[in-house]
Design a protein around this nucleic acid. Structure first.
Lengths: 116, 116
DNA sequence: CGCATACATTGATGATTATCAATGTTGGGG
DNA sequence: CCCCAACATTGATAATCATCAATGTATGCG
């Protein structure tokens, strides 16, 4: 597994789409599908939701294993997928790992649908 | 497989979200994940793209098996998934089956991300 | 140093899923 | 009525994925 930024950091594809987009190439489709794959699981959607709903804007793993009826390793696995998709950001402080939404990532993902 | 409308027809959940959405329930998450599951495949993204790009607004299966390097049964299978997700509409005229984007479906799906 | 806590990684297993070959179905033409 | 064309469905298979138990790693505390 390469730690590649599936969702482009700042070089937004969004603003420069060649207007008359003919269709979707095989490679682009593969990249875009990776983001939707990350969203294609109920538990991952709930993880995103919980992180987003948190007042502090970030949550540690221990806050996430409770609401979801899942073991800690499974939650870590889902979080990793969301990070690799560019949707979540991980920051380790002390013993805890804090996860937060990548700013604009959800909006950018919504934009992917418009540029199909 | 039940022929259920995953993407709600008109009774939009969107307009009535209780403002301070606490988190995402297990059942809601499951429903929303179904739509993203349909988008989580490169070939299905390309199918949507081709249908969208077509000037007439609709495409028959024979127009879709070429660009994608897939057999006809596989394409039919993917199209069925997209229809069941509420993203595509199927209309049979004569021997041909025409697929078109469900109006507003992509925008509504984008809205799902905002209401996480 | 030694131990406990918080989290990640590994390995294994059962469940989905994507794909194809073969077959079924329906509609139009001769 | 028979055949062909367009598409759908079925059944089988290989690959992917979600989950858990067990283990590894690093950090803070005494």
């Amino acid at each position: 597994m390469s730690a590649l930024p599936v969702l482009e950091p700042a070089t937004d594809e969004t603003c420069c789409a060649p207007a008359g987009t003919p269709a979707l190439g095989a490679e682009e489709a593969k990249q875009k599908a990776l983001v939707f794959k990350a969203l294609a699981d109920p538990n991952r959607l709930r993880l995103l939701s919980i992180v987003k709903a948190d007042a502090s804007g970030e949550s540690c793993v221990c806050d996430l294993t409770g609401p979801l009826d899942l073991g800690q390793p499974t939650v870590s696995h889902h979080l990793k997928i969301l990070v690799e998709a560019g949707l979540l950001h991980r920051e380790k402080r002390g013993t805890w790992a804090y996860y937060s939404l990548v700013p604009g990532a959800l909006e950018q993902t919504a934009g992917l649908l418009a540029t199909l």
